[in-house]
């Protein structure tokens, strides 16, 4: 098992390298730094000098891959590729357009992001599993039918509307919680209630329906009939036999997103003015701050790969067939 995990870890390396090369190609080969400078500076101020200055400030004035005139290892290190892509591995992200250090920014913004994403994840998981289990338990009744209808209807609403609608109803109409903003510490709770609630509701439809099909699929299996033949009550069949089996795909399926919780949720954060990584990313996209977007792509990928690794590990933990085989 240890060998397996080690092997999966090693497998992550070429993937990281691939991502790095892909982002490099995307940011520096599709468009040259000159193109970016023109876009950033706006049409009016484009002069060759301005472009050169813009590039020099950001270190884009070096060769892309190979610095022939430089000496020794500098041939390789004094290039855009090394400075902007290779250094990502050392978590050296450089500076944003506002000249702040990106790594520091990310570190301080992680907290609020997690404060929002973790409750959404946990509460959502519990709510969805509970409802899905209930619908599977009352399968083929009106309760189940209307449950599915509700899920499909909720799936069909854009997450934007959940945020707008929730914000309007709860904050504006009922004056219960603040519309937006954030404070650290205990006060965070009152700012987070609404976004958490909306986050949970927004994902309810599709997850619950998916889990329901997982439960139903599990309930059609032979061992369920065996359990019934033993005279076990339906609730025991459900909780001891079905739930335990269905939780394997559910849990291992969600493990992959756990690391990416650090990234926060893009839309919710920016709507509610929570100073997390999600809103940071959105702002960067809207301001066309390439350095920040590049950093977030890299971090996001690393976290996803960690998630894949955790998925592999979680399989070996929860599924005896994998653990003992």
């Amino acid at each position: 098992m240890l060998g397996y995990i080690l092997r999966r870890t090693l497998y992550a390396i070429p993937i990281l390298v691939g991502i790095n090369l892909l982002t490099f190609a995307l940011f520096f080969l599709v468009n040259t730094p000159d193109d970016m400078a023109r876009l950033q500076l706006g049409v009016k101020r484009v002069t060759p000098e301005a472009i050169a200055k813009w590039k020099a400030e950001r270190g884009y004035d070096r060769p892309l891959l190979w610095n022939a005139p430089a000496a020794g290892t500098k041939k390789f290190t004094d290039t855009i590729f090394f400075d902007k892509s290779v250094k990502l591995f050392a978590l050296d992200f450089g500076r944003a357009e506002d000249n702040r250090d990106i790594f520091n920014e990310i570190r301080t913004r992680m907290g609020p992001s997690l404060a929002l994403a973790v409750p959404v994840f946990l509460v959502g998981l519990m709510v969805n599993i509970t409802f899905a289990l209930g619908m599977a338990f009352f399968r083929a009744t009106y309760l189940d039918l209307w449950g599915v209808v509700l899920c499909v209807a909720m799936m069909s609403i854009s997450s934007l509307f959940y945020i707008i609608g929730g914000q309007y109803l709860i904050s504006k109409l009922w004056h219960l919680v603040p519309i937006s903003g954030y404070e650290g510490g205990v006060d965070a709770a009152k700012f987070l209630v609404l976004p958490v609630l909306i986050g949970v509701i927004g994902a309810f439809g599709s997850s619950t329906r998916f889990y329901r099909t997982l439960f139903l699929e599990e309930m059609g299996k032979d061992y369920v009939r065996t359990a019934r033949a033993k005279g076990l009550a339906e609730s025991v069949v459900m909780f001891r036999h079905v739930l335990k089996n269905a939780l394997i795909p559910i849990l291992t399926g969600v493990v992959v997103v756990i690391p990416t919780l650090f990234l926060g949720s893009l839309i919710t954060e920016s709507f509610f003015g929570i100073p997390g990584l999600g809103s940071y990313t959105i702002d960067a996209i809207q301001a066309q701050d390439f350095a920040v977007v590049r950093s977030m792509v890299f971090i996001g990928s690393v976290l996803y790969i960690v998630g894949l690794l955790l998925t592999d590990i979680s399989y070996t933990l929860v599924d005896p067939r994998v653990r003992l085989a």
Partner: peptide
Amino acid sequence: TLNSIPGVLLIAAFVLMLQVFLD
């Protein structure tokens, strides 16, 4: 590899580049 990059970010990066290109 493609899957590892969070979808929105990858699309955002692509679109930003597309925009630079079109501009």
